Simulated assay, not measured.
Amino acid sequence: MSGPRRRPTARERTARYLLAVRLEQLREQAAARIEPTGSRLSELAARPLEGDTTGTVTA
């Protein structure tokens, strides 16, 4: 049995807002951690290998 819906209190609205802000901060932090890794891998892949290893495969 469901009664009439009550309006959220100011405390509930504030809590929801703060949660939304914090989640957005965490998303931005996660994105910032991922981006440098990708660019770093690209930099490493573009560098020539050290020494004379052309054509050498070691298993």
Rank of each mutant, 00 (worst) to 15 (best):
A15R: 02
R7P: 00
L49T: 05
P48H: 05
T54A: 15
A45F: 08
S2T: 11
T53I: 13
Q29W: 12
L19S: 09
M1Q: 11
T56R: 15
P4H: 13
T53D: 11
L44Q: 15
E28W: 13
Q29C: 08
A32H: 14
I34G: 06
R16D: 03
I34R: 08
V21G: 01
R33Y: 14
S39K: 09
R40Y: 14
S2Q: 13
T58K: 14
G51D: 07
L19H: 05
A20C: 07
G38C: 02
L19A: 09
L41V: 04
I34Q: 10
L41Q: 07
R11L: 04
T58R: 15
L23T: 03
E24A: 11
L41T: 01
D52P: 00
A30L: 14
M1S: 11
E43D: 10
G3D: 08
E12A: 02
A59T: 14
R11A: 10
S2F: 14
E28L: 14
P48A: 11
T58C: 12
P48E: 05
E28A: 14
E12F: 00
Q25N: 06
R16K: 08
R22I: 00
A59Y: 12
A30C: 11
G55R: 00
E24H: 07
R5T: 06
R40S: 10
T37A: 13
P4W: 09
T56D: 14
G51L: 08
A46D: 09
S2H: 12
S2W: 10
E43S: 12
A30I: 05
A30Q: 09
A59S: 09
L49Q: 14
A15V: 02
A10T: 01
L18K: 00
S42E: 05
E43Y: 14
I34P: 00
E28P: 00
R13A: 04
L19Y: 04
T54C: 11
L18R: 01
A45W: 06
A30K: 03
Y17V: 01
A30H: 11
R11D: 03
G55K: 01
T14C: 07
R7E: 08
E24R: 03
P8W: 03
E50V: 04
L44I: 06
R7T: 05
R47D: 06
T54V: 10
R11I: 02
G3R: 06
A31G: 10
T58P: 02
E12M: 02
E50Q: 15
G38T: 01
G38W: 01
